[in-house]
């Protein structure tokens, strides 16, 4: 087993290193797009964790494709300038269609009422993440912390919910976002922007939804996760340094992240095997 085959290296060191290098380069060349470094770090990790093949086209591969679609949409938004309500609705519509495409194999054989409940509930979750994370796009440090905390909690909860694959992927995004948070403290001109927040919302939302539908992530975990983008908007005293501010935001989000993990742990039971 080589170093790059180690799950811990794949979902922590690899995305962190790629994000660090790329964010520094983008920070010099095009600071507005620095958030893209997080997504690049995630995709390098995803290539190691899950491979680059597209067949069979599983839900996980569909999610990775939809994340790339989100990158394209975010790039379009960057080049077109401020987006209109219509453009935002089109993006949300595309992502909802993507969610249903990803969920279809699991929904198609469930009773209609259960399938509709799942689809509607998860649609609300994804749309909420899209809107709430997008609202943080111009605040790089809170944006990075929101992605990091959402990813950490959802990643650990997914592993407890019997899917190491999805847990590893989500954790890779959290690790990359963690590096971005540290960089925003050192290089204040870095921007999160839609290039980070749109793909991150799509990936976090869809991967968590997949962990619920295809593994055993309880819905209560998603409810606690959904509070994170709201809690991060709680105003803090203005005179705090950026580092203290970051530490306080992490502390502020810890209970919600902890409850999301606890729900998964409680639901799975504590027997290791």
């Amino acid at each position: 087993m080589t170093l790059l085959d180690d799950p811990l290296i794949q979902s922590s060191l690899v995305p962190m290193t790629v994000t660090l290098l790329l964010a520094v380069v983008l920070g010099r060349l095009w600071p507005r797009s620095a958030g893209l470094a997080v997504i690049a770090g995630f995709y390098v990790a995803a290539a190691l964790i899950h491979g680059l093949t597209l067949t069979p086209l599983t839900s996980t591969r569909k999610i990775l494709l939809l994340g790339l679609l989100a990158v394209v949409l975010a790039l379009a938004r960057e080049f077109l300038g401020r987006s209109s309500a219509t453009q935002r609705n089109v993006v949300i519509g595309l992502i909802i269609a993507g969610l249903l495409w990803m969920l279809w194999p699991a929904l198609s054989y469930r009773p209609l009422a259960e399938a509709v409940t799942l689809a509607v509930g998860l649609t609300f979750y994804i749309v909420w993440l899209l809107i709430a994370l997008d609202a943080l796009a111009d605040q790089p440090m809170p944006a990075g912390i929101a992605v990091m905390m959402l990813g950490s909690a959802a990643g650990i909860a997914s592993v407890l919910a019997a899917t190491a694959l999805l847990g590893q992927l989500i954790s890779a995004l959290a690790a990359a976002a963690g590096v971005f948070v540290v960089l925003t403290l050192l290089l204040p001109k870095l921007r999160a922007g839609p290039l980070l927040m749109l793909p991150a919302a799509v990936l976090l939302g869809l991967l968590s939804a997949a962990a619920l539908v295809y593994a055993k992530l309880p819905a209560s975990s998603l409810l606690f996760l959904a509070t994170i983008p709201a809690l991060i908007r709680i105003p803090l005293p203005a005179n705090l340094t950026a580092a203290v501010r970051a530490a306080m935001l992490v502390l502020l989000l810890l209970p919600a992240a902890g409850m999301a993990i606890y729900s998964a742990w409680h639901s799975a039971g504590d027997l290791p095997y």
Partner: peptide, 20 residues
């Protein structure tokens, strides 16, 4: 063992929801 069976059914192994 139920917990291991749940894991075997997940996308990590047999991915039974997609490939029943």
């Amino acid at each position: 063992f139920q917990k291991r069976d749940d894991h075997l059914r997940s996308p990590d192994f047999l991915n039974v929801a997609e490939f029943p």
